[in-house]
Simulated scan of single mutants.
Amino acid sequence: MNKESVNKEFEARPETAPKAWHAGDLTAKARIRNATLSLFAQHGEDGTSMRAIAAAADVTVGLVVHHYGTKDGLREAVDTLIVELFATTLSSTPTTGAAREIVGLRDAAVEQMLRDNPAIVDYLRRALLTGPGYPGDVLSRLAALTADQVRALRGTGLASTDRSVTEQTVTTLVRQFGRLLLQPLVNRIVDEFGEPGQYAPELVVGVKSRE
C-alpha cells in the first residue's frame, strides 16, 4: 500500500480521527492549559510569563496558580495532553491486516494529528532543539509510549522480533519526528530558490542499523 492509499484509507475513517484541541468553550482549567501550550510553542517556557498565560486564557493569575501551581505544573499538564493525544491517535488505527499497512496507517494518523495541531508541532520542535532534556519530559514520555506500542505490536505478530524494542522505538520516532524537524527547511529552500510552481519534495527519514 503506497502512502497516498494509506492517507486516503485513514481519511475515510473520520470517526476514528482525534480532533484538534480547541481554546474555546472549555473549562477555565483547560483554557489555561491550552493557552500555555500555544504560548510555550511560540515563545518557549522561559519567554512566557504567568501573567501572559492568564491573559490568553482570560482568567486571573491567581486561578492559574490555583489549578497548576507553577510553570512546572503547567508544563506537566501540556506534556500530558500531548502524550494522551499521541496515545489516542495510535489507538484509533486498525490492529489487523498486513504489518506494513498497519505501520503506514499509524504514521499517517500521527501526521494528520500533528497537521491538525500546529501548536503541538512547534512545542515539540522547541523540546527537541532547545529543551534541556531530562527523564520524564515530553520526549521521554513519548519514547516510553512508543516502546509500549512496539511491545504490543510484537505480541500480536505485527512487529518483527528480529530487532530490539529499543531499535524499533528509535526507528519509529526518527521516522515520525524527522520530517517534523526537517520538512520546514525543505519547504523554505523551495519557496526561496525553487522554480515557479515547483512543489517541495517530501522528506523521508529513516534509520539504518549498524552491520
Rank of each mutant, 00 (worst) to 15 (best):
I120G: 02
E11C: 12
V174A: 14
V6H: 06
T93D: 03
Q42F: 00
V59T: 15
T93Y: 02
D191K: 14
N2W: 08
H66N: 12
V138Q: 04
P18G: 09
R13W: 11
A77G: 09
L139P: 03
A56Q: 08
I120M: 15
W21R: 09
L39P: 03
K3M: 11
L63Q: 15
R100E: 15
Q168D: 13
L63V: 06
F193L: 15
S209Q: 12
R51Y: 00
V150A: 01
F86S: 05
T172Y: 04
W21G: 01
E167V: 01
I189R: 10
A108V: 07
L81W: 03
H43A: 02
E202A: 13
P132I: 09
L124W: 04
V205L: 07
S92C: 07
A41D: 05
V186Q: 05
V121Q: 13
D25S: 13
S164K: 03
V61A: 12
Y199G: 05
P196R: 11
N2G: 11
H22C: 08
P94N: 08
T16W: 09
K208A: 13
G206Y: 09
T171E: 15
L180G: 13
L105V: 12
A99E: 10
E15G: 15
A12M: 10
T80Y: 00
R115I: 10
P135L: 00
E9M: 13
L124Y: 02
Q198S: 06
R210E: 09
S91R: 14
S209C: 00
A152P: 00
I189Y: 13
G206D: 12
E45K: 09
D72C: 00
K29Y: 03
S49H: 06
V190I: 14
V103Y: 08
G69S: 02
S5E: 15
V170I: 15
T161H: 09
K29S: 10
V65H: 11
E192R: 11
A23P: 02
Q176P: 00
A56D: 05
Y68Q: 05
R141P: 01
G194K: 01
D116H: 09
V190S: 08
L153F: 07
R179C: 10
L37N: 04
A23V: 13
G131Y: 04
L124R: 07
T27F: 10
L139V: 11
R13Q: 14
A108F: 06
T169F: 08
D46E: 12
R188P: 00
S160C: 08
A30C: 01
R125Y: 04
M1V: 13
T93C: 14
D191Y: 04
E167H: 02
L182H: 09
F40K: 04
R126M: 03
I82P: 05
T146Y: 07
A109L: 01
T156M: 05
A152T: 13
A17G: 01
W21K: 02
I53S: 04
L182A: 13
F86R: 01
E167S: 01
Q198E: 15
L39Y: 03
D122Q: 12
T156C: 07
A127S: 12
E15L: 14
Q149I: 01
V64N: 10
V204G: 00
D58C: 07
D122L: 08
A143S: 10
V83R: 05
S92I: 06
E76K: 14
P201M: 10
V64D: 07
H66G: 04
